[in-house]
Design a protein around this nucleic acid. Structure first.
Length: 423
DNA sequence: TCTGGGGTCCTAGGACCC
DNA sequence: TCTGGGGTCCTAGGACCC
């Protein structure tokens, strides 16, 4: 029987911080987005205090003080490294692992023997990951991805499952869906939930009882797929990780934002450079890019501006210098005066194809194989000695104005910041 | 004062062609 | 001046995920 497992790290970013701060176990902890703007990860204790996901920090200052909530700026280098450790352990237990996000993976558990065996196997995985990395995970196993996600939420919620919940027959499926709110289903967001509520649909089971054709006409093919997945019919397959079709790097700036043309160009050059690096990492080239910058939509008292420029690259490229230059040219073409305080900017690469499928051009004067060799050397150095060790001059000192007041050390990736155990 | 970042997929509608 | 129908391709925008 085909079976999917979904391994989900519990409160992942908070759990990463706690691995190195065991004194915070049992206490309310929050991890913040860049610029320490919004809440993006919460410990169970923080959830119990009513702190909502995505709420801006300034709106919960009182609670933070009153309950002594521990705060962390997001430390993606640390989370990325912890994620790699978790995924590498998980991959020992399945012939096929498909990483869905930094803290979630689908595992292929098809034809793994009887259910009791699989249950013990699943609980063993959960235990091993906790022991090996310190990260608690929840494992859901079911005939479809959407049901596996449902199962993982049960595994997380009820201690009796010992971290692993299996939905393997119609009776269990029915029971689980009756207890599951329709808005919590993978693939049903705010808008769909709103509409479903109007029709009196409250649980996932209610949703499955709707007429399939009606679901298709009301929510298009995507909603219909979710409907079928909940019936136990797998229609989202376990594919190899496909190459990205667009690559975006963007940031919000701290404080008032950036008005200075030169500073803005420097920021955009850095975004373009990081985009190009990601592009080379997946061995692709892009033929189009967009550069954008806009003012704060919350500051209605200030003049607003929105720069958005599309640039065609004649020949597919992943060369940093070329992509940086195009991004700066694109920005300059739209930048008018220094009267605007830009709060956010970014670069998007798209029209992405494999690097060995580049369509050449008779009039191309660049020696592309030489450039590619140079880029590889630069990538190697930057991987070894840190991002930005070798960079283009327009990128400046690579120091963006981003606020990170509660940053934890790079415990696992920097020898100078490794945890010290007192004797 | 302070409001994240990075993706995917689908659809409607306009431009263009014959 | 009136004025058709069918097709494709592209793009912007919405909805969803973490």
């Amino acid at each position: 029987m085909p079976l999917f497992g979904l391994a989900d790290c519990n409160n992942f970013f908070v759990s990463c911080e706690r691995v190195f701060r065991p004194d915070l176990n049992g206490k309310p902890v929050l991890v913040l987005s860049s610029n320490d703007g919004c809440v993006i990860s919460r410990s169970n204790e923080a959830k119990a205090l009513g702190i909502k996901m995505g709420v801006p920090l300034f709106q919960i200052r009182k609670e933070v003080e009153k309950y002594g909530i521990a705060l962390f700026s997001s430390n993606y280098v640390l989370y990325g490294d912890m994620s790699r450790r978790v995924m590498s352990l998980l991959s020992c237990y399945t012939p096929k692992l498909d990483q869905y996000s930094i803290d979630e993976s689908f595992l292929d558990f098809s034809d793994m023997g009887d259910i009791e065996y699989l249950r013990r196997y699943g609980q063993e995985i959960v235990k091993t990951v906790a022991k090996g990395t310190g990260i608690p995970i929840s494992l859901g196993i079911a005939p479809t991805r959407t049901l596996a996600k449902v199962a993982s939420k049960f595994a997380k919620k009820y201690k009796g499952y010992h971290g692993c919940c299996i939905i393997d027959n119609d009776e269990k499926r029915q029971k689980a869906l009756e207890l599951f709110e329709v808005g919590d289903v993978f693939g049903i967001g705010r808008k769909m939930k709103e509409k479903l509520t109007k029709f009196g649909i409250r649980t996932a089971a209610d949703f499955t009882r709707l007429d399939g054709e009606w679901v298709k006409s009301a929510f298009s093919i995507t909603g219909y797929r979710t409907w079928r997945e909940l019936q136990g019919e797998a229609c989202i397959s376990l594919d190899e990780l496909p190459a990205k079709k667009s690559i975006c790097v963007s940031r919000s700036f701290a404080g008032e934002g950036i008005s200075d043309k030169h500073k803005l160009e420097e920021a955009v050059a850095n975004f373009a450079s990081e985009c190009a690096r990601k592009l080379r990492e997946q061995k692709s080239v892009c033929r189009q890019m967009t550069v954008f910058a806009f003012t704060s939509r919350f500051r209605t008292d200030l003049p607003q501006d929105f720069i958005n420029n599309n640039i065609n690259l004649e020949i597919g490229t992943n060369d940093s210098s070329e992509i940086i230059k195009s991004s700066i040219d694109g920005l300059r073409a739209c930048y008018r005066t220094g009267d605007f305080a830009y709060k956010k900017a970014g670069v998007i690469l798209w029209d992405i194809v494999s690097a060995n499928a580049v369509q050449g051009n008779l009039f191309d004067k660049r020696d592309r194989s030489k450039i590619s060799t140079l880029q590889n050397v630069i990538d190697d150095i930057n991987r070894r000695d840190g991002k930005g060790t070798v960079r283009n001059a327009v990128q400046g000192d690579n120091h963006l104005s981003i606020k990170r007041e509660h940053l934890s050390p790079l415990y696992t990736t920097d020898i100078n910041e490794i945890l010290v155990v007192k004797g």
